[in-house]
C-alpha cells in the first residue's frame, strides 16, 4: 500500500490517483450505505468493482466526484482532498469523467454539442478547437457520421459511446463507469466494452462498476468485491475469479456464474 503522503507529492507513473479511507455514508433516511470503505487506485490502473445489488457500489463511485456526500473518512482524488470547498469539488469534477448506466446524454443538444458544451463553458476553450477535438474523439469511438444527430436518434450502444466521448472531451485523468452496459441490449454490449478496452490500453485510470466477468478478467488490474457497504475482497482478477478468499465472494461468484 502506498502511504497517503505519496498522493500529495508530484504524480509519477503508478502514483496514487484515488485514495479513499474509512468512508462512511448515511442517506437522508438514515440508511447506512457505506460502512468504512478503503480503496486505493493507482495511475493507469483499471479497478473493477463488483457486488450484489444494493451493496453500495454506485454510492461509493459517486463519492469520488462529489455527486454523493459522505460523513466520515477522507477521499483524495489526484492530490485534491475532497473537502468542504466547493471549488475543489468543481476542480475534481473537471478531472474525473463519469459514465452512467442511463447514458444521461442531453437530448436537446446534438451529439457534437453534447461533447463540446462542457469544454467550452467550463474550460473556456475556443469553439473550433473543441469541435475538432470532439470530432476526433467521435471517430475514435466509431460514430463520426452521427455528429449532427440528436441522441434520441441513436441506438443505446451508440449513445453510451457518445457518453464516453463526452467525458473524454473534458480530458479527464480518471474515468468512472457505473454499470455502463447494464441498460444495453446484449448485441450492443461489446461495442461499448471495446471502447473501454481501448481506453484502458491507452493507460487511462479507470474505476468500473460492472458485472461483465470477461471484461474484468481481461482488463482489470484488480477486482473489488463490495457487500453491505463494505469492501470484502480486493484481488487480481485471476485470483479473484479462480480462487476467491472470502465466503461472501464465493457466494457472489456462484450467483453470477
Amino acid at each position: 500500500m502506498t502511504s497517503p503522503a505519496a498522493a500529495t507529492s508530484t504524480t509519477i507513473a503508478g502514483a496514487v490517483m484515488i485514495e479513499a479511507q474509512g468512508v462512511e455514508k448515511w442517506y437522508g433516511n438514515g440508511y447506512h450505505a457505506l460502512r468504512g470503505v478503503d480503496l486505493t487506485v493507482h495511475q493507469g490502473e483499471v479497478v473493477v468493482i463488483m457486488g450484489p445489488s444494493g451493496s453500495g457500489k454506485s454510492t461509493f463511485l459517486r463519492t469520488f466526484n462529489g455527486l454523493e456526500e459522505f460523513q466520515h473518512g477522507t477521499i483524495t482524488v489526484d492530490g485534491i482532498t475532497l473537502g468542504d470547498d466547493l471549488r475543489q469539488i468543481d476542480a475534481i469534477r473537471r478531472e474525473v469523467g463519469m459514465v452512467f448506466q442511463q447514458f444521461n446524454l442531453f437530448p436537446h443538444l446534438t451529439v457534437l454539442e453534447n461533447l463540446t458544451l462542457a469544454p467550452i463553458k467550463v474550460r473556456q476553450r475556443p469553439q473550433h478547437q473543441v469541435e475538432s477535438q470532439a470530432l476526433e474523439l467521435l471517430e475514435r469511438v466509431g460514430i463520426h457520421e452521427q455528429a449532427h444527430k440528436y441522441p434520441g436518434q441513436l441506438s443505446g450502444g451508440q449513445q453510451q459511446r457518445v457518453a464516453i466521448a463526452r467525458s473524454l472531451c473534458m480530458e479527464p485523468r480518471i474515468m468512472l463507469f457505473d454499470e455502463p452496459t447494464s441498460a444495453l441490449d446484449p448485441e450492443m454490449v461489446q461495442e461499448v466494452l471495446e471502447v473501454m478496452r481501448e481506453l484502458a490500453k491507452e493507460g487511462m485510470t479507470m474505476v468500473v462498476v460492472t458485472h461483465e466477468v470477461k471484461f474484468a478478467r481481461q482488463v482489470a488490474s484488480r477486482v473489488v468485491l463490495m457487500a453491505e457497504g463494505r469492501v470484502v475482497e480486493v484481488a487480481p482478477p485471476d485470483q479473484f475469479f479462480s480462487n476467491p478468499q472470502h465466503e461472501r465472494s464465493k457466494q457472489f461468484l456462484g450467483q453470477i456464474a
Binding site: 500529495t8 508530484t10 473537502g83 470547498d85 478531472e95 473524454l168 480530458e171 493507460g203
Partner: peptide
C-alpha cells in the same frame, strides 16, 4: 488523436486557496 492521458504527467494539484465563504 492526442490522448487525454498525455496530460497525466502534469499534475493538477495546484493548491487552491479557499475563500472562507465557499464552504460546502
Amino acid at each position: 488523436t492526442r490522448l487525454p492521458q498525455g496530460l497525466a504527467t502534469t499534475p493538477l494539484a495546484t493548491p487552491l486557496t479557499t475563500p472562507w465563504w465557499r464552504h460546502r
